[in-house]
Amino acid sequence: RVHVPGPVSDPARVIGLFDIFALSSDSEQFPLSLVEAMAAGLPVVAPAVGDIADMVSEANAEFIAPPGNEEELRMALVQLAVSKDLRREVGEANRAKAVAQFDEAKMVATYRRLYASAMGLEL
């Protein structure tokens, strides 16, 4: 089954109900929806646009397709759809990476250090 929920007022409340996070964008930079999906422990299927390929865990890399390659997106979806163990493994790796690299407090602290350093300020 495929559910296309459309706009959701509080996606954090429902994203954990999904089995796979699929993104089909032609253009992205650093999609927050991807970070939310990773934090929820989901495997990701998406095209390699913007920062997506660098954002996902190493375990998830094979499910990132070249831009415009619908067949590879389809094959990645099928591979994940048929294996609950694979979904869990990839999702756990994504969650670990999201916690380690995309935690909001850590990101804010990193930006503060970066800007302070660029301005020659000490924190």
Rank of each mutant, 00 (worst) to 15 (best):
R1I: 14
V2F: 15
V2N: 01
P5L: 13
V8T: 04
V8M: 05
D10Y: 05
P11E: 01
R13E: 12
L17I: 03
F18T: 05
L23Y: 01
S25T: 13
E28M: 10
Q29V: 10
E36F: 08
E36I: 06
A40L: 09
G41W: 09
G41D: 11
L42P: 07
P43W: 03
P43I: 10
A46G: 01
P47N: 03
V49D: 02
M55S: 12
M55Q: 14
E58W: 00
N60R: 00
A65C: 06
P66G: 15
P67H: 10
P67Q: 06
G68V: 10
G68M: 07
N69R: 13
E72K: 15
M75H: 11
A76H: 09
L80Y: 05
L80G: 05
A81M: 07
D85P: 13
D85V: 14
L86V: 09
R88S: 11
G91W: 01
G91A: 05
N94P: 12
A96Q: 10
A98K: 00
Q101Y: 10
F102N: 09
D103L: 15
T110R: 13
Y111L: 13
L114I: 11
S117E: 14
S117M: 07
A118R: 10
G120V: 04
G120N: 01
L121G: 02
L121T: 03
E122S: 13
